[in-house]
Computed example of a mutant assay.
Amino acid sequence: MLIQSVFAAAREVFSPALRRIVWKSIGLTVALLVLVWLGLTKLFDIFLNNHDLSATYPIIDSFAFFLAGFGLFIALIYLLPAISAIVAGYFLDDVAEVVERKNYPADSPGQPLPFGKALFYGLRFAGLSLLVNLVALLLFFIPGINIGVFFIANAYLLGREYFELAAGRFWPAEDVTRLRAEHRGTVLAAGAVVAALLLVPVVNLITPIFGAALMVHLHKKLTQNPAERMPLRRDNHASIEKA
């Protein structure tokens, strides 16, 4: 099931139907990375200017600039999951519509999340990811632990949040949580695939689109049993409750 979803998502990312969305996603990801890079560089420059090392310790000053360049690059790697979260939240409905229409035409289409809820999910996802990866960044100089913490933490977060975004197009929040809990192992494994992709330079730029497509396919496959074949639309759910 998971392997089928992974290969289906990989084919989807490079399909003509998603090509325009992929390029837009890469453009937004690069733009956000550049903005973060400029912001971090500016902060470091302010720090050096407030602590004038060049006059007394020119060697330390030069080493600080070299370390800053390497340090900022590492910081961007740890910030990439949070940036990916923002991009994924922005493009998920576009990706889901294409995947659902192309691969599941007989099923009822999902409903895009309301803008406020989509924004909340995206910011929550980014905030959690930023917090977890800042903790992981503190462990960067501990060999054997740094990569492990980064991978496990992001496998959990990416699996949970991407799945909730995809399933949220069909189910009320409490049912999304139930589905994720029932299939926690599969969702975590899918998150691990996305987290592994984040570790591959350049290829990690397509993570938001790949992750979105993967979870759309996975959600569909997980809800194909008779008890869950017809996901509850939010509007149908609300009308049932009112009745």
Rank of each mutant, 00 (worst) to 15 (best):
T186H: 03
F91Y: 14
L48M: 15
M230C: 03
A10S: 09
L48N: 10
S62M: 09
R234S: 06
V200N: 07
L128H: 14
A85C: 05
G89F: 04
I142S: 07
S84I: 04
I152Y: 00
N225Q: 12
A64G: 07
L131W: 05
L76D: 03
F170Q: 09
F63H: 08
D61I: 04
L33P: 02
R11G: 06
E12Q: 12
I59M: 15
L158N: 14
K221H: 08
E182T: 12
D52V: 13
E97W: 01
A118R: 15
K117W: 06
L214R: 10
I209A: 04
M1F: 01
D52W: 08
Y57V: 04
N154E: 10
L165H: 15
L165Y: 11
N154K: 06
T29A: 08
F151G: 03
E228L: 13
V6Y: 03
L197R: 12
I206H: 02
R234H: 08
K220A: 12
M1V: 10
S239G: 03
V95W: 01
A64S: 14
P226G: 05
V98I: 15
A173E: 15
L113Y: 01
M215C: 12
V200G: 05
H237T: 09
G168V: 02
D93E: 09
P105M: 02
P112E: 07
L199W: 11
L92Q: 07
F91S: 04
I77S: 01
R178I: 09
A192N: 10
M215P: 09
V36S: 02
L157A: 09
A126G: 00
A136P: 05
N204D: 11
T41Q: 12
A192H: 03
N204K: 09
A136L: 00
A195G: 11
